[in-house]
Design a binder for these strands. Structure first.
Lengths: 247, 247
DNA sequence: CGCGATTTTGAGAGCCGTCAAGATACGTGG
DNA sequence: CCACGTATCTTGACGGCTCTCAAAATCGCG
């Protein structure tokens, strides 16, 4: 009988069984297995990667939520994006030398650790996985493009509608959300720092939208009451569900 | 608006001789050569890629400036980033299926055409070039992160300082700018759509900065009078010059 | 029950958008 | 070479969106 390890083999990884991820060959799984150098458990608020440092690792989120952010010297903080299970974080630091943003755990989180040095081996031996990495980078870019459009051009109510609906759909896709509701681990301060608004203005806009019965957000529970209305307000276009890669 | 195509060997490509790009092996050059399926000449204002379409190609900018943008249904436009010689555009459409942004020529431009189908061959046969593609995607992500911080958190004067200095440095890096000045092909409307400001407010802020003698922008010529002052205002950190890849 | 974190609400100030009009630059045809 | 039209830039006035400051209410947790 095998000794019980703290880490699951990739083939048994509960994440991979979810419908939203593409299946992998035994070869691929074997390599990823060897590529993986452990798991990281991060408590709420723990800093996973720090801007300006050069990390030896990058990660796949296995469990929980994290977020990427940048700050200015006087403390202003911009949240760039959120990481949910299946998302890759820290690739940028692995490809270039220095991290240009920080990553923090929004909930307690479990991450799969990859060594940066091993990335080159992946590229030389597994074209399919290399392509996956590029796919993931390209998806991140798309999310950033959308966020830039949101912050640059959408008005307050549209911004909130867009960001909440986007997070809801992303959570749904990885089976973290039900048909109408999701447990959102954000505070209004997080949302404000995502939108580029002050906390006060975020709160007032949120209340106005709730009064319009588009959604209800109490405690950690976000309930989407009128998905179509939200989508119309935000000019949110649903993207076709497809099975995506994961490292 | 009608595209013409020509052909030029990659080994002789004048872009590659510039110091800012990494050297390539004969093998790599040979493959890129076969990978290249022609050149596209785009006139000022020509649309190179369209959001929602699925393009069969992606491109490297050889000459001129282009920009990526997204729009809302009522015409609001967010410029996401600019493409200068050496930059890759349209990779996202090649990796996923549909383009999620549009690309337009800011000046008349010449682009190297790559067939999307050939991307897979590149990944299976040239790990080094695959890694380059990922490097380029990661660099684009970094620029978007910065822009998100700029639009979300920086104030009007800081935003303009940051964007102008960033464009100036990028142009310098590819030898499009001199020690103190560059020919910027943007209108104030482009800048406004980049910053998320109205044209009027952009103009007034621009005048205020010129009055502080940080730069002068007359006609198409931008002259940086006080780089250190600009950098401090914008909290712009120079990144070390390094030789970067190009496809 | 008490404390810190988070949320909520009000008031006043200021940044930024819209509207409008004029000025300047540039290309084209007469 | 000038006239004219279009694109771009500039400036002023005014309204509104968003910020800051402040304080109270609520929640989460030991």
């Amino acid at each position: 009988m095998k000794p019980r390890t703290t880490r699951l083999s990739c083939a048994q990884c509960r994440l991979r069984t979810r419908e939203c991820f593409r299946p992998f060959s035994a070869d691929e799984l074997g390599f990823i297995e060897s590529f993986k150098s452990g798991e990281l458990i991060a408590d709420v608020g723990a800093t996973i990667l720090t801007e300006g440092s050069n990390s030896a690792h990058f990660y796949t989120v296995l469990d929980g939520w994290v977020f990427r952010y940048k700050t200015l010297t006087d403390g202003r903080r911009q949240i760039l994006n959120y990481g949910l299970p299946g998302d890759l974080v820290g690739l940028q630091g692995a490809v270039s030398d220095v991290m240009h943003h920080s990553v923090e755990a929004l909930t307690s989180a479990r991450l799969c650790i990859f060594s940066r040095d091993a990335l080159w081996t992946l590229y030389s031996r597994f074209p399919s996985l290399s392509f996956d990495v590029t796919w993931l980078a390209s998806r991140e870019e798309r999310l950033l493009d959308e966020q830039l459009l949101t912050i640059g051009q959408r008005k307050a109510e549209e911004r909130i509608a867009f960001v909440l609906l986007r997070l809801f759909r992303r959570a749904q896709h990885v089976e973290l959300a039900g048909e109408r509701s999701v447990e959102l681990p954000l505070t209004q301060q997080h949302l404000a720092d995502t939108l580029g608004f002050s906390l006060v203005h975020t709160n007032k806009t949120l209340k106005r939208l709730e009064a319009r019965r588009l959604f209800r957000w109490r405690g950690r529970q976000l309930t989407v009451l009128d998905p179509a209305g939200l989508a119309e307000l935000a000019q949110y276009s649903e993207d076709p569900a497809m099975r995506r890669p994961i490292l």
